[in-house]
């Protein structure tokens, strides 16, 4: 019993588009950050599906590196969010319109 590769790619496209939608319509800076993680996950799914299809391990290695970068990005990004919240007392991105801390 098998599943067509296009099913996986379609699911990946839907998840990525939902991540982009959340990135656009959300106003809370933490939720925007989470939607970036959702997009990364969608890309990971298509990487693993292609890896399984082409019998290439490189796809899974790429997913590993994407996860490492996502972890580093989450640590730094959440630190930036904490610094912004300390100076602005808000998490709304509409109020955070200057790069200056």
């Amino acid at each position: 019993m098998t599943v067509p590769l296009s099913y996986y790619l379609t699911l990946s496209a839907i998840l990525f588009a939902l991540g982009v939608l959340a990135f656009i319509i959300k106003r809370n800076i933490i939720t925007i950050f989470m939607s970036i993680e959702l997009m990364l996950n969608a890309v990971n799914l298509s990487f693993v599906a292609f890896a399984a299809h082409w019998k290439q391990l490189s796809g899974q290695i790429f997913v590993f590196f994407v996860m490492v970068v996502a972890a580093a990005e989450a640590a730094v990004g959440l630190a930036i969010i904490i610094a912004v919240f300390r100076t602005r007392d808000t998490l709304n991105v509409d109020d955070v319109n200057l790069l200056k801390l």
Partner: peptide, 11 residues
């Protein structure tokens, strides 16, 4: 448009 996508993944 991807010809590979019509193949099936041996799950």
């Amino acid at each position: 448009r991807n010809p590979a996508a019509r193949d099936r993944v041996p799950v």
